[in-house]
């Protein structure tokens, strides 16, 4: 599928902000099943410094500074992305999960050694007994690992209610466990915590989801916002993306921006400002399927002098 994604974030401050420092993680990754042909980010007011950087996980981020006093900050990222369906997986034919764990433990491959990072607690994902117990229900001895993981995805989808506004980025998993509600990032965190508690490597994925409902199908959750899911590492198969919010293996309509241990590694926008007292935040995300020939690499907006366009490599 081909998409043009427009992700606009606007902060309105009550008092002028004199200095603003920000990190962005908005540029979709290139992977086996996805390629980004064009990415632009515009910042208003104009940034004094805007630089690209690649983080530990290979995600392409941007750093920018604004020195001019301003009451409105607008960040608009536009990307043209082509996604492909990944090969079909037969869940019941995968390795028994206990065998898989043994394989993971004994894997001496250098990537596997570094991927042990995704087995450990991370800033927003902490191992607890109740999470471990919840996870074990989907993992009886001998069950094929993909089937077990999908069962866990389905149980989270079923037993937890998707309630926008019920949590924010600081809500701990223990609270999500007890209230049984949350949003996509909570569900991703929860399933990651479950898998890690069992000794299976799992990472957090941030990105977008196409929300135009196909004819006759129900509209998917995650409209007009960035989306989050997770990926589990399985011997022989590699990283399999799971979306507990929508109870599915993430596919062609999931556009991946970046991955990390948890949300804290891949926050789309984070910033420190000097000045400003209160602010309002508006975010709009538009994931628009487009015809191939429309993808020209040109932005639909002409560049204006107060904006600075950024052209990635």
């Amino acid at each position: 599928m081909d998409y043009r994604i427009t992700h606009r974030t606007r902060y309105r401050y009550d008092e002028p902000v004199s200095l603003s420092y920000n990190l962005l993680l908005l540029s979709p990754r290139n992977t086996l099943f996805q390629s980004c042909s064009n990415f632009q980010v515009r910042i208003s007011p104009q940034a004094s410094l805007l630089e690209e950087r690649v983080d530990r996980f290979g995600n392409a981020g941007h750093y920018f500074e604004i020195h001019k006093p301003h009451k409105i900050l607008t960040i608009t990222a536009t990307s043209d992305v082509t996604t492909r369906q990944s090969p079909l997986i037969q869940p019941e034919n995968s390795l028994p999960w206990d065998v898989a764990i043994q394989r993971i433990r004994e894997d001496r491959d250098s990537d596997a050694r570094l991927d042990r990072l995704f087995l450990l607690d991370s800033p927003m994902i902490k191992h607890t007994r109740s999470i471990e117990a919840f996870a074990r229900e989907s993992f009886p001895p001998g069950r094929p690992i993909v089937a077990a993981a999908l069962d866990l995805t389905a149980r989270i989808n079923r037993e937890f209610s998707y309630t926008p506004g019920s949590t924010n980025i600081t809500t701990p998993l223990t609270e999500v466990m007890s209230t049984r509600q949350g949003v996509c990032q909570d569900f991703a965190h929860l399933q990651i915590a479950c898998l890690r508690a069992l000794g299976l490597p799992a990472r957090y994925v941030s990105g977008y989801l196409e929300t135009q409902p196909p004819p006759g199908k129900a509209r998917l959750v995650g409209v007009d916002a960035s989306h989050a899911w997770l990926a589990i590492k399985i011997p022989d198969l590699g990283w399999i993306p799971l979306d507990p919010t929508n109870n599915m293996i993430a596919g062609e309509r999931h556009i991946m921006v970046g991955w990390g241990r948890d949300y804290s590694d891949v926050a789309p926008i984070s910033g420190v400002i000097i000045g400003g007292s209160q602010h309002q935040l508006e975010v709009s995300v538009d994931v628009r399927p487009i015809e191939k020939n429309q993808l020209s690499g040109n932005s639909q907006h002409t560049s204006q002098p107060e904006f600075r366009d950024y052209q990635p490599i």
Partner: peptide, 10 residues
């Protein structure tokens, strides 16, 4: 005199 404050992340 100005205070530092972390902007909300989304």
């Amino acid at each position: 005199q100005l205070r530092k404050r972390l902007a909300a992340i989304f």
